[in-house]
Design a protein around this nucleic acid. Structure first.
Lengths: 139, 139
DNA sequence: ATAGCTGCAAATGCTTTGCAAGGCC
DNA sequence: GGCCTTGCAAAGCATTTGCAGCTAT
């Protein structure tokens, strides 16, 4: 017997299938939260709490698994601004970040707002994977 | 009775005193390693191993303490490139970093090699503490 | 049917903390 | 002497892993 997918999960289901991921109940909930309404910055814990707040039943370990699976599938991107806590960003286009050191809040900076000129050449034998600009804010 | 400071620790001792830190045996060893010969990038563990390799007797907790005390005193600067591991840099002048994701190695990029133009304004009520540019390398 | 997921709990890795003993000023 | 440091071990987080049971395809 095939499971009926609720209408609000239709978009998430298609996105998961397109990425080659099975449409499990937990992934649908997380995908809906992550991709359902605009760009998001989440940590494993914040996403877990948000999902739990929506009444979803899933474990923190599954949230970690899904975040990494989504990242590997190219649906998310990891942002490193704080040793000890990984952030995930649903905005995949090139851009940078403001980071409020006090609150841990992350905010996008459109790529057009920063120009990185004269990028240095990668050292012998290395390729540049990505350039991250983090503007750290105090107060 | 006052302790005699070995000649090779003279410079380190003065640096600690200038920063308002007591010249304990452990701090002298760490300061000598960190500031004795050119700029360094260390993690707590790498510094601990290096000190232990030089025959110094000190605990990992003390290395953590000293790294934070040195940072608070303005002798070091923390670099965040990897969630889960803090790096410390003895180079205090403005500059940026190459990060080899495979090996975890960090390498300085002189400030003059990168131009960050058109820095965005800090959001209402916030001040820019610092701008970090991290060039992530693969291979 | 079966390969892939999930959940739980235990394990891991880095870092911090509490507190008694020791050392600098 | 008094206060700051150290050392050890235990505690603390965030994250990962092992494995039995479940589920999408």
């Amino acid at each position: 017997m095939s499971k009926v997918i609720e209408p609000r999960f239709q978009a998430a289901a298609e996105q998961l299938r397109a990425a080659g991921l099975r449409t499990t109940r937990q992934r649908l909930v997380l995908a809906e939260i992550l991709f359902g309404r605009g760009h998001r910055h989440v940590t494993a814990e914040s996403l877990f709490n948000e999902a739990a707040g929506h009444g979803a039943k899933l474990s923190l370990a599954t949230v970690y698994n899904c975040l990494h699976q989504f990242t590997a599938a190219g649906l998310l991107r990891m942002v490193t601004v704080d040793a000890g806590r990984a952030y995930f960003d649903t905005n995949l286009s090139p851009h940078h970040h403001f980071y409020y050191e006090k609150t841990g809040e992350l905010r996008d900076i459109p790529e057009s707002d920063i120009a990185v000129a004269r990028l240095p050449q990668a050292p012998e034998g290395a390729k540049i994977a990505r350039v991250d600009v983090i503007v750290r804010l105090q107060d």
